[in-house]
Write a protein that binds this DNA or RNA. Structure first.
Lengths: 132, 132
DNA sequence: CTCAAAAATGAGTCCGAAATCATAGCATAA
DNA sequence: TTATGCTATGATTTCGGACTCATTTTTGAG
């Protein structure tokens, strides 16, 4: 599985938030989507730090879209939600320090790098507007 | 992470086996590749059931390629090794019984199905001969 | 025919990441 | 100033990947 529930919640949240003209709070969102409040809050915070959402504090505060949905790459959403880039294999993340180095040059990394690149390109080119 | 270590071991094993003219046992392979023996054995058994490898029991037995590497899709290797199809999300596996159905129609499944299809196509079209 | 090599099977452990729960402060618009 | 909601942090639970062990079954070799 490439994506965890965090990405799923992020996408569902963004779809709800973009359809609202008012800021939506974490608690309200959690209730509507039937998602654990605290867990969702973390994800929303990450999305805000990434500049995808804008958080408004205080009374009647909440979250609002910070960018146009045409300007948000799906990959940036995933990276914010997961806290790291989506990887095909674990080893592709640290190819310079491949654990398989011990048994000789890694036979599969050229393929994996290619595969990883294709997925990265796909997710980078895919905008939020393409999927909602 | 899309692929677990099982797929990695499967690819490394196939690369070793195809270069040998004699059957290679699970234990020998485990030693050469520095992989836990029993864990590797399970993977090899799965590959044999899938018709990718041929298993020969008894003395001087072991595993041999059952097909030409041009006829083996990488996706079939992954399915054998992982025991299931590689999925972007968990929910794409059982779209007919989506847990998010409880909160209305799933907003992200159209995208996920598209994404999943692209990955499936890529892995189906990719032959073992392309990467070794 | 017997025996040993090697595959096949199945149950069970260990560990770390994912997911969830909890909560005490901090910031701000009304 | 006060209600509202964000921030930060950490404990807890859950779950699946990674691995081990013990046993059975098969079959070629002597």
């Amino acid at each position: 599985m490439l994506l965890t529930r965090a990405s799923e919640y992020a996408l569902l949240s963004l779809d709800t938030i973009r359809q609202s003209d008012k800021p939506i709070g974490a608690e309200q969102l959690a209730n509507e989507l039937n998602i654990p409040k605290s867990f969702l809050a973390k994800i929303l915070q990450s999305l805000a730090k990434e500049g995808i959402l804008e958080s408004r504090k205080g009374a009647h505060g909440g979250f609002v879209m910070a960018k146009d949905i045409h300007e948000i790459a799906v990959r940036s959403i995933i990276m914010a939600a997961e806290g790291k880039a989506p990887a095909v294999f674990d080893c592709t993340s640290y190819m310079h320090n491949c654990p398989n180095g011990a048994i000789g040059s890694c036979a599969i990394s050229p393929f994996l790098a290619n595969f990883q690149t294709r997925i990265d390109d796909f997710l980078n080119g895919l905008m939020l507007s393409d999927i909602l």
